[in-house]
Design a binder for these strands. Structure first.
Lengths: 223, 223
DNA sequence: TTAATTATAATAGTATTACTATCATATCTT
DNA sequence: AAGATATGATAGTAATACTATTATAATTAA
């Protein structure tokens, strides 16, 4: 079976020059994912990246104005990808409960397979999201960046899933809180399970995180 | 009424030299809280701090080996303080449901009043916890630091509150996940409500965050 | 009380970071 | 073939996150 080619479109506000359109741009994105996963965001630099792809620091700056901007780009890419999967999983499904559970599954499960859409390795990117994404918005520039639309895709994903909550329970007061709690919580639990396991109840081989959040949400909106 | 003097004891692993024991040490802690809140963790430096307290960068390094170590210290201080409040609020209370609800209240509510225990301004520190604490453990050194006991207090708080969950519902499978979800979630919601409000459902003047998490937990462990 | 110890401040120095600027060269387009 | 554009190489800057050294001040012990 041939795979559909997924179109991930990224808002031009998130780059100086579109990395998708050139070989160098794609190499920047691809290798930066690998290196941030490997070194952690703090120790990752454009100089090291340039060296690794046989290019130059100054060339990378033509695509992204800072390494922070690159992180925001990657986070946004991830949310566009998740949004695509949500749309794909929920169109033509009529039962909002099924839609909601599919979304929770997509938002909380581990990414184990690279669907090889493109130059982006989704497994590695997911690890970056879990370990580093909170650094993208925990900045003193958050308000300025938010007004430029940097976090639009994330907000749209939360809105979409919250809408399913509202479909199920129209008077539920906290749909956005519930969904953003699930999303951020799942990332934390994923991180904790590896590094601070006493903060979780994750068992080997089980999809505990997904099970926990499905149950949590269903109980929260039970009427 | 005279206030009880609270004893916040910090594990010596968290500093090079105990800042509580000297004037300079207390000034470092006190002013760093102010400055991290003000500048954000990235733009905060020991050089600036030294300047602000009429001391010197090199003197500060005698108390904390790095600015990351100082952040970890502050986070740990916060959890010791919360632990104290939890112990205070739950001793001599027999009903585990009341204990649990008190804990959720303490873990999720906004800190509005500086109880002036000491040189630590708890209102400001709470803002730092909300905005910066995730940077303390999202490091490549997490495992090494965890083995040195850097996150002990946080883990102990989660354990304490999880125990109340287990008292109420002995077979509930995810007590730790539930509590760490509440804690991290509350911090996120607090941050989002200020900077990305569309991810929340916070209303002016209401304690929505606390209400949301109380309801969430009670529904999760309802039998 | 003096000597020894310890704490602090001042200064200097280092490698690295996160950029910016300039320019030559390669490549692609018209 | 000329012009435009993209890339790479080099250099430079202010700041960061430290380390090391030394002088001086303050505390403590003999």
């Amino acid at each position: 079976m041939e795979r559909l080619r997924i179109q991930i479109t990224i808002d031009p506000a998130l780059y100086t020059r579109d990395p998708e359109t050139t070989e160098l741009g794609r190499k920047i994105v691809s290798k930066s994912i690998e290196m941030i996963d490997d070194l952690g965001f703090e120790k990752f630099t454009f100089k090291k990246l340039g060296l690794a792809i046989n290019s130059n620091e100054s060339s990378i700056y033509r695509y992204f104005e800072s390494k922070h901007a690159l992180l925001v780009y990657l986070v946004s890419w991830y949310w566009s990808w998740i949004e695509y999967k949500i749309v794909f999983a929920t169109t033509n499904v009529s039962d909002p409960s099924i839609k909601l559970l599919s979304c929770i599954e997509l938002l909380t499960k581990d990414v184990k397979e690279d669907t090889s859409i493109s130059y982006v390795n989704e497994v590695t990117l997911h690890r970056i999201i879990v370990a580093e994404s909170s650094k993208a918005y925990h900045t003193k520039d958050i308000d300025k960046e938010n007004s430029k639309g940097y976090y639009k895709t994330y907000k749209r994903v939360v809105q979409r899933v919250s809408d399913f909550v509202t479909d199920i329970h129209p008077t539920y007061e906290y749909p956005h809180m519930l969904i953003s709690t699930v999303i951020e919580g799942a990332h934390h639990q994923r991180y904790f399970s590896k590094h601070l396991p006493s903060l979780t109840n994750v068992c080997e081989g089980k999809n505990n995180i997904t099970e926990f959040y499905k149950e949590l949400v269903l109980n929260a909106i039970k009427q």
